[in-house]
Design a protein around this nucleic acid. Structure first.
Lengths: 231, 231
DNA sequence: GTCTATACACAGATAGAC
DNA sequence: GTCTATCTGTGTATAGAC
């Protein structure tokens, strides 16, 4: 058999297909982008054909080329949007937070979780399909990623330097905290019992515990319980 | 341009391409499996052609079909090997550990990190390419995955029930701890300054902090620093 | 901008000789 | 088991009419 039927199990729950406010282009270009978001998240870049993309956007595959010069350009735009949204929100979170390292880390992790709960498809595509881009197309996103990582690393390092975080290595702690949030995009959805606020608060508590925050800026040492338990 | 040249940036550091002891078949079949491990990790299942697989194994692409009935079967074997290795090692770690929840969680996280540092390619393929398998081919791996998750969840829950873990929700804590280890496969390699033992110990410390272990079974509250710092 | 039609490289897989 | 040669569908992308 030479064909590849589409029996692949869904990679994500039934999540709303949407992009951050104000960045979705209007008209056909917007529909192409949203279709690409869903398909790339579900089947991967190489698993998605331009005919798939055309169908999802309600147009013939040839019409795609009136809007994007290649399939790769569609992915590149999505990956960049994802990295921009991440960087903007984390940077704003730190800017809006009180001055202490604990408060800033809490703000950072909260925003990190929210990006992954609010735009799980975009986060997944930006992370998992970045490797399918050419170096030139990936470069802007990689630069943003580096900046975002430095932002988080800086918060942790300043907490250590100030003596309010008790953790031997800033990088390992940052990597661990970052990993927690990234993974949320893989399981968050309407078919599980946790609300976004609850996950964000719990994960912020976890992060402060990981870095060994002496007087955690937590609302309570235990947060809340899930809306309903079925796990 | 209708062709797709292979300029994709590498998804992983230059890691040794190997499978757990005793599971690599001999001869050509083994070379096919190892070649598939490298290629699927680097380019993804859909990004790898059967001609790529043949070249990597040093044979003609047609010869593949004397060993596997389809390209998908090669991936299926790799994904299953990955899930088996994970489940066996985590189960053994818990069995070998002292009885307390803190000691068991430490053993679990240590083993979890080691699987990801010792077989990062296999862990990546098992996690990231599982979705490319048909439901029938994915089923055994999904069953193992479920068992492994229950193993970890059980350790955390027993710690909570025994009153030695102080965390409001077992599932969120387990998901967070699991995420930390999974991500290690994406950055561990010879080009970074951390040794596997150091990561494992730090992450076990992090895990005990996340669950709020009262008297942590840690060797020290601070573990060690990296061999050399360049992060 | 959108379509139909099509070009042409490559995909997975098979036939049959050795 | 391994090869050469080949089948056939699908891939990305383009040409040209409307």
């Amino acid at each position: 058999m030479a064909t590849t039927p589409r029996w692949e199990p869904r990679r994500l729950s039934a999540v709303k297909v949407e992009l951050p406010e104000g960045v979705t282009p209007g008209g056909t270009r917007g529909r192409i982008l949203l279709g690409g978001l869903q398909l790339f998240a579900e089947l991967g870049f190489h698993g998605t054909s331009i005919r798939d993309l055309g169908s999802a956007a309600g147009i013939n595959s040839a019409t795609l080329y009136a809007h994007y010069p290649s399939k790769e350009h569609i992915l590149a735009e999505l990956v960049l949007l994802g990295h921009q949204a991440m960087h903007e929100r984390l940077q704003q979170a730190v800017l809006d937070a009180p001055a202490g390292p604990a408060e800033q880390l809490r703000a950072l992790v909260t925003a990190h979780v929210y990006v992954h709960t609010d735009f799980p498809l975009l986060a997944l595509v930006a992370n998992a399909e970045l490797h399918a881009l050419s170096p030139a197309q990936a470069a802007p996103s990689l630069a943003l990623r580096e900046q975002t990582q430095q932002l988080a690393l800086g918060v942790v390092q300043r907490g250590i330097d100030a003596g309010v975080f008790q953790v031997p290595d800033a990088y390992l702690a940052t990597a661990a905290v970052s990993a927690m949030g990234v993974r949320v995009a893989s399981w968050f959805g309407p078919d599980q019992p946790y609300r976004r606020e609850q996950i964000a608060q719990s994960y912020a508590d976890f992060a402060l515990r990981v870095v060994g925050a002496t007087s955690p800026a937590s609302t309570s040492p235990a947060s809340t319980s899930p809306a309903d338990k079925e796990r």
